[in-house]
Computed example of a mutant assay.
Amino acid sequence: MMDIDEIKSFLPHQYPFLLLDRIVEVEKGVSIAGYKNVTINEPYFNGHFPGKPIMPGVLIIEAMAQVSGILGYVTAGRSAADGSIHLLAGSNKVRFKRPVRPGDQLRLESRLLSNKHGIWKFDCRGLVDGEVVCVAEIMSAERKP
């Protein structure tokens, strides 16, 4: 389990772009699960959408990429603190099943599919109350110092 301080030791992201609050499971080289607590205080809700706020899909994808990046770091025994970085390289098979709204706790799950020549591929999904809200295949490119 990782709290926000440990998450920040792995990722270079800062407010308002750090989209993880807690990691609850991690198995090196296999899978990871974490949470993003979605609150009305998120800055993007001012315009997305007034009167009917929903979390932008691209930010759900970014949250999946962040949790996947931590799995990549843990698997490789590195972190952003050593100068390495996982850059979002692509997303495939993205499907949104229902909106994510303020008050939801977004569970982010990622399973490592492959790592070849510094290109990592992950099978991801987001859930709210056990219901799938998004699925995607995320790719990241690891850059070492």
Rank of each mutant, 00 (worst) to 15 (best):
M2H: 15
E6R: 12
H13M: 08
H13N: 10
H13R: 02
Y15A: 05
P16D: 06
L20M: 12
R22T: 10
V24L: 00
V26W: 02
G29W: 01
G29D: 14
A33Y: 05
K36D: 06
K36R: 10
N37H: 15
V38P: 01
E42I: 01
E42S: 11
P50D: 08
P50V: 13
P56V: 15
P56F: 15
I61N: 12
E62V: 11
A65D: 05
S68H: 13
G69I: 10
A76C: 13
G77P: 07
R78V: 13
A81L: 09
H86N: 06
H86I: 13
L87I: 07
A89K: 00
N92F: 03
N92S: 04
F96M: 15
K97A: 13
K97V: 15
P99W: 04
R101H: 13
R101I: 15
G103P: 02
L106G: 08
R111W: 10
S114Y: 01
N115R: 03
I119T: 01
K121E: 03
D123Q: 14
R125A: 03
V128S: 14
D129K: 04
E131V: 11
E131D: 12
C134V: 14
C134T: 15
I138H: 09
E142P: 04
P145W: 03
P145N: 00
P145G: 00
